[in-house]
Computed example of a mutant assay.
Amino acid sequence: MFELNDLRQTRFFQDVFEEGKLEAIPHLLAFGLSIEQIAQGLGLDEQLVRQAAQPKS
């Protein structure tokens, strides 16, 4: 039987989960958290957080 843990192992789940983290970055910045705090809290590289914090053109 396919269980939740099996779903979490799929590439699709991991991609969606990662995308959710990136979408949360501007909101966390608005709350006053620093790039470093966000990176540490979400388990992301600081450079990735900086890139996600840039306004979309």
Rank of each mutant, 00 (worst) to 15 (best):
A39P: 13
Q54P: 03
G43M: 05
F31I: 04
Q51V: 06
L33H: 08
L42W: 06
S57W: 10
I35T: 04
I25L: 00
L4M: 12
E18Q: 12
L42V: 09
G41S: 10
L28C: 04
F13S: 09
A30K: 15
R50L: 04
E23D: 11
L33M: 09
L44M: 15
L48M: 10
L44Q: 10
I38S: 01
L7M: 15
L33Y: 14
I38K: 06
E36F: 00
L42H: 10
E18P: 00
D45V: 08
L42K: 11
G20T: 02
F12G: 11
E3F: 12
I38T: 09
A30G: 10
S57P: 15
F31T: 13
E23H: 07
I35H: 10
P26F: 02
E36K: 15
I38G: 06
I25R: 02
K56P: 00
D45C: 07
F17G: 04
L33C: 05
Q14E: 13
R8A: 08
L7C: 02
S34R: 12
Q54S: 08
L28I: 06
E46P: 04
Q51C: 03
Q37E: 15
F2R: 13
R8L: 11
I38C: 07
D6Y: 04
Q54A: 09
K21P: 04
A39F: 01
A52Q: 09
N5L: 06
S34G: 14
A30N: 06
A52R: 11
F31R: 15
D15W: 01
A24I: 03
G20H: 05
A52L: 03
Q47C: 00
G43H: 02
A53C: 05
G32Y: 07
F2Q: 14
Q47A: 13
V16Y: 01
D6I: 08
R50V: 04
I38H: 04
V49Q: 07
M1V: 04
N5V: 12
L33K: 06
L7G: 03
E46S: 12
G43F: 01
K21Y: 02
F13H: 09
K21C: 00
A24T: 06
